[in-house]
Design a protein around this nucleic acid. Structure first.
Lengths: 257, 257
DNA sequence: AAGTGGTCTAGACCACCTG
DNA sequence: AGGTGGTCTAGACCACTTA
């Protein structure tokens, strides 16, 4: 499992309109190999990786080069480093990263875990737009679920969630309801599916129909519409989410850097 | 201007419920010194810093330690590193970072610069909530301006902006209108005020009154309300912005990591 | 050719955690 | 005491830019 010291993507001898990277540093190659091992679940969520000296030996590079690759993966949130203990695969089950993907904050008071209520669970053929967003073939099966999040008995979020059926084979409404902790914790623990990052598109829409009823708001009440596409390793989409947020007592927080 | 090798914040000998960091690595001290120089405009936006060997000599540390400090500042977006050329102070005037703080994307077609139209410009005593958000004393002067952003002649964003009067002394409606390029580019070039990062709170609200008219929407049309607080060095707040966004043909994009 | 940042190495030492 | 990650150093070499 050694790594070549020469460019991984050597530049061609010709130069006819070529704009290839033509150079890949060692630590990037190590990073790619580590990412591959992570995606193959060589180490599972929450588990420790081998120590830096061990990895250096495995890849036949210096410890400093391994370190640079590990630091990069930690910066992307795939790994967590703990001085004196080791390097661990990041997990959604932890307190520390509990709220990584939850941007909704109460106007007053501390952030409190909201109650969940599952309303619906179906298996169906993916509609064209869902299939496209999840990179599925038209006709592939998807799981579709609807849930409500409540703060103080008041509904705040109504989520419609689509999952590709194949990686989540065996998921049932019962297992969802029974699981304690964040849903992404269930996904990684039971199905080996790690949510790495997500893209969201946010709009303002007017409440209407059954959704207004479920959120207990008048029709025409302004709501946030949050469309989330969650990705796992290699940017493979594995979840689509369409959430309606009430923002009378909560807001969506964001940081620009 | 040398830097101590011993902890900058040495832990106390006693241990009575003490939880202080008790240790500050050298590169963090260098980073703090560089940040200080940046905030004092020792190097202005777009200018080059001294080279790594020069900085290493100035601070009496190795080049590797300087490098680690510079890399950290680059990761935070304060500096831009360019191989073969040097390390530069990040600037909002550049193409590359033009859209760093602009999250509104058109549903279709490429991102195009929107037209600006300034509607209002006032100097007034800061209301209590504005003063608090900008860390001003009640009664301090603020500049307040209102502007419209249009895409294809259609209004899309209505911004109300509050600035503390002191750092922006001499800002007029004319200079604002005359300036080509992003507003934050004007702030850094003319007033030495660098916007480093910002916090946003997003809600859905119903259009009403003069604001509905200016955006040319019916009352009750759902709009995004985006409250932005922009910060400069040392997290000093220097701008407050309250924007209303039409989201029929645009969306607010976000990335979760 | 000379200067810049970028990579890689080897070694020393430090801080933190666990037995 | 021994293992883990974190810091710091010094030196070699590489890639990119400019003159």
């Amino acid at each position: 499992m050694a790594v070549s010291h020469v460019p991984a993507v050597p530049g061609p001898d010709h130069a006819l309109g070529d704009v290839s990277p033509a150079f890949s540093p060692l630590y990037q190659q190590i990073k790619a190999l580590l990412t591959r091992s992570l995606s193959l679940s060589e180490w599972k969520a929450g588990e420790a990786l081998p120590s830096e000296p061990e990895l250096a030996q495995r890849f036949k590079v210096s410890q400093g080069t391994v370190r640079k690759a590990l630091d990069a993966l930690a910066a992307e949130g795939l790994l967590v480093r703990r001085q004196g203990k080791g390097t661990f695969v990041a997990t959604h089950a932890e307190e520390r990263v509990q709220y990584r993907f939850l941007r909704l904050m109460p106007d007053q008071g501390p952030r409190v875990a909201m109650q969940r209520r599952f309303l619906d669970f179906n298996r169906l053929r993916a509609p064209a737009d869902i299939a496209r967003a999840l990179s599925l073939s038209s006709g592939d099966s998807v799981l579709q679920l609807r849930r409500l999040l409540l703060a103080d008995e008041q509904p705040v979020v109504l989520d419609d969630i689509w999952l590709p059926a194949k990686p989540f084979k065996g998921l049932t409404a019962e297992r969802l309801s029974a699981y304690r902790g964040p849903m992404y914790g269930l996904f990684e623990a039971e199905f080996g599916v790690q949510m790495i990052r997500a893209e969201e598109k946010i709009r303002a829409v007017a409440a209407a129909g059954a959704e207004a009823d479920l959120l207990r708001v008048q029709p025409l009440t302004p709501l946030l519409l949050v469309e989330r596409r969650s990705l796992t390793y290699a940017d493979r989409p594995v979840e689509l989410r369409r959430g309606l947020y009430r923002t009378e007592a909560h807001y969506y927080r964001n940081e620009l850097n």
